[in-house]
Design a protein around this nucleic acid. Structure first.
Lengths: 135, 135
DNA sequence: GAGAATTATTTGATAATCAAACTAAGATGT
DNA sequence: ACATCTTAGTTTGATTATCAAATAATTCTC
C-alpha cells in the first residue's frame, strides 16, 4: 500500500510539473489555463459551479473571468431560468486554446504509456475508473 | 487513448481537490504543506533544489522558508562542502506534520483502491512505475 | 407575501509570485 | 595564481491570486 501511495504521489507531482511547464509556454497563468480546461471539457456553466470546480471563491473568480473576457477567451451569457446567474463559456478563441492544450495532454498520455501492453492499459483504465468513483 | 487521457485528468483533478481540502484543515497554506511534503519525503536539501522541485524561484522560496522557520517547522543548517549553500530540513514539529499528512495520503490510497483485486493492484503499480519513468 | 437562502460582484487586506539587482563563494581556463 | 565566469541565496519592487465580508439582486420556502 505504501509503495502504491508513493507511486501515486510521484505521478501527481510529475504531472504537476509537466502542466506548469506547458502552461508557461502559452503565456497565460496556471489559473487561467485551468479555467479554460474546465470550461472546455464540461461546457458553459455558472460562476458558482465553476468556482467550486476550481476550488476558489466566487469573488476570486469574478476578477479572473473579467480578465479572460478582456483577453477574448471567455464570454458571459444570461442564464435562462435564473436571473441571478450568468453562464460563462469559451469563445472560439478560447476553444482553440483548449483544443491545443488538450492535444498536448493526449500527446503526454501517449508518451508515458509507450511501454505498456494492451492488457495493462485495459487494467489501468478500469483501475482509474474505479478509483475516480471512490473519491 | 482519449478515454485514458480523460481518466488521468479526472484522477488528477480529484486528487487536487482532496489535497486542497485536507490542507485547509491544517491551517497552513497549500504552498507551505507542499514544501513540508517535499522535505519530508526527500530529506534536507539546498534551496535551489527545493525551489526546482516546487517549481518556484529561489527568491520566492527564501520568503517561504523564512515563514516556515518562524513557525518552527523548518530549520536551516550550513552546507558542509559549499559555503554558498544552506540545507533546509524539517524540525521535529515539521516531521510530525509531515507524518500526519502522509497518513492521510495512505488512508486515501487505501480508500480509493478498496474495490481493486490483487492482480489489478499489481498491474497498476507496474503501470505507475513505467509511466513515472517516462516523464 | 415575509423571511431565509442563493448568486454574483465589489472592496480591502494579505499572501504568493516573479524578474532583476546584489552579495558571496565556487569553478574554470590560461 | 588570478581574472573571469558561473552558481547559490537574498533582497527589493511590482504584479497577481486569493480570501472574507459586505452588498445587491433574485429565488426559494413556508
Amino acid at each position: 500500500m505504501h509503495s502504491l501511495n508513493n507511486l501515486i504521489i510521484e505521478f501527481y507531482d510529475k504531472l504537476s510539473s509537466w502542466e506548469q511547464s506547458v502552461v508557461k509556454d502559452t503565456g497565460y497563468s496556471l489559473a487561467q489555463v485551468h479555467t479554460i480546461e474546465v470550461l472546455g471539457s464540461h461546457g458553459p456553466m455558472r460562476m458558482k459551479e465553476l468556482a467550486d470546480r476550481l476550488g476558489i471563491t466566487t469573488g476570486t473568480l469574478t476578477v479572473q473571468i473579467e480578465k479572460l473576457v478582456n483577453l477574448g477567451l471567455v464570454n458571459r451569457a444570461a442564464h435562462e431560468d435564473d436571473r441571478r446567474s450568468i453562464l460563462v463559456g469559451l469563445t472560439s478563441e478560447g476553444t482553440k486554446l483548449h483544443a491545443h492544450h488538450n492535444r498536448m495532454h493526449i500527446e503526454l498520455t501517449k508518451d508515458i504509456t509507450r511501454n505498456l501492453d494492451q492488457h495493462s492499459i485495459d487494467v489501468l483504465k478500469t483501475c482509474f475508473e474505479k478509483m475516480n468513483r471512490e473519491f
